[in-house]
Amino acid sequence: MSDKVLEVKDLKMHFAPRSTIFSKSNAPVKAVDGVSFHINRGETVGLVGESGCGKTTVGRTVMRLYNPTSGEIIFDDQDISQLKGNELKGIRSKIQLIFQDPYSSLNPRHTVGKIIEASFEIHKINPAGGRTAAVKELLAKVGLNPEHINRFPHEFSGGQRQRIGIARALALQPKLIVCDEPVSALDVSIQAQVVNLLDDLQSEFNLAYLFIAHDLSVVQHISDRVVVMYLGKIMEIATTKDLFAKPMHPYTKALLSAVPIPDPEIERKRERIVLQGDLPSPANPPSGCVFSTRCWKATEKCRTEVPELITLGVGNPNERSYACHFPEN
């Protein structure tokens, strides 16, 4: 058994062109365009980047909710990128998803018990001691009152609904959970409760998380390593410590410098790198380095040659990768 629960190699997910009333387009949207990374067992890998850079698409493709355009998705030592039918269903129970909006992902007409039990039903699983007992145990695990098994989603607060989503994801004892903005919709005080819960569950079940979020402070708190994406491509991968202390990619540097720090004294002294301009369209990405149109270091080389993802210290715990012709440091 490999240490890696997931390894993604040169994954591409291009969407067929969409014409809207406002624009006729025939170029595919390169939502994910040649992405490689891995997640170790029991590890949390954060996935960050601006809106539209392809984070959700990576998560959904890895779960095989989409058929990838090309590339490999090795889950538990098996390439699942081309699996179909029952084989795929078997794998899906081992990779679960937690959404941003707990409410829209829970059927309002079903009780909490029924919602969680549905996972057992779909996969024809009968836990020892019966399904109801198993559901109650899951509710207790995520910090909800097991007596509330017959309540409906609207009777719970936002944070509690997110706990229901987590209980549902845990039901099938997954090895990997894709958390897509799991705390973004929650108030800070409630956010901390859910983040702590995810932490505890990880230790207890040796879960691996792909943690997608735009809030870098939460990502920094929860992740062991972080993947930074921009316009469908990976810009940098490093341990959380290295990435936040010594970013190598200019984009990472700009991103970090934009995060406000809740400390007025530090804020008064801080220098910001303010990126100019807007994110280009993934249907028409810039040539060369995709970040070159907004990068303050860009030269002619950047505008013509695509920088490869270079990995330093392959295989050691501080392994890090970057895709830039002129890295920092």
Partner: peptide
């Protein structure tokens, strides 16, 4: 105090447990 303690900071370096405010508004 509860609000300030429950937010993670990008400059904190160490991944200590967040101090959540228990319960709900």
């Amino acid at each position: 105090q509860g609000l300030l303690n429950s937010i993670p900071r990008v400059d904190s370096g160490v991944a200590e447990k967040l101090v959540a405010i228990p319960g709900q508004p």
